[in-house]
Write a protein that binds this DNA or RNA. Structure first.
Lengths: 135, 135
DNA sequence: AACTTGCTTGATAGCTGCTATCAAGTTGTA
DNA sequence: TACAACTTGATAGCAGCTATCAAGCAAGTT
């Protein structure tokens, strides 16, 4: 059993966010000790993991709650949950592509500035130069 | 010259967001036509591109404004801007790694559900089974 | 000329998902 | 007995959109 602080460190999610998620119903089977403090089991860590995963690819909290609720219902919702995972994966792959595109621009900018620094060239970004950005 | 609608379509950023960014000072050299409508030049598209890039890797708007202001100052801020691009790139690479990790989990879940569906196995996610999630 | 359609503007209100602050309670160590 | 370190829930605040609104202009139709 883990305390909220331990889970926060293990999963790299703030305690605040964990409480917020708990309040949102994302950890349906969590137990409490005699002082009312949350006790996270290994299974609960699994819930944290999938919630973190869904959030980090931009799934909104309402949809996450829906997924959690489907899990609770059981067998009859397997196909529906499978479809959610599939479309989430699709979204993640698109984000990967987008990130690659942005990295290309950052690479270009990086080289642009390196060139300026190494060769003491004028800064075409400077609006006073009448030579604005060409990329 | 492009209208805000055209820019919205080309750059895949909502008109709302473009106006919000404009108001935030992210497009410092934008001009207006005789009806006070914004006219985006090719250079302005470049500003939209870099702002979108910085936002999509999680740079906050205050930091973006700072970067834009450094660009306006000119030559003397080249090193500073270079450092910002470098650290932004670093952040983007970390996000790429994080995304890969999350994709692994999604792959696992996908196969988990495929296995359930193909073999008509019981749903160990179902809490009534007393066999909660093991991943 | 009047009307409609389609675009634009700025102001403002509302939303999501945290994030920070707070008082209050429990536990362990000195 | 005090304190430090943890926990709780409630509440307020924040960033970054997102949606709604009235108002204005331009071009085309009747």
């Amino acid at each position: 059993m883990y305390t909220i602080k331990e889970v926060s460190e293990i999963m790299e999610v703030s305690e605040h966010t964990l409480r917020f998620w708990a309040k949102s119903g994302f950890f349906p089977f969590i137990t409490r000790d005699k002082n009312n403090n949350r006790q996270f089991s290994e299974d609960d860590l699994g819930w944290v993991r999938i919630v973190k995963c869904l959030r980090s690819v931009g799934t909104d909290n309402k949809s996450i709650k829906k997924y959690v609720d489907l899990c609770i219902v059981g067998d009859s919702t397997i196909k529906e949950r499978y479809d959610i995972i599939r479309s989430t994966k699709e979204k993640a792959l698109q984000q990967m592509q987008e990130l690659k595109t942005q990295l290309e621009l950052l690479d270009y900018k990086e080289k642009f500035y390196e060139n300026l620094i190494e060769n003491n060239l004028e800064d075409i970004w400077n609006p006073m130069n009448n030579k604005m950005q060409k990329v």
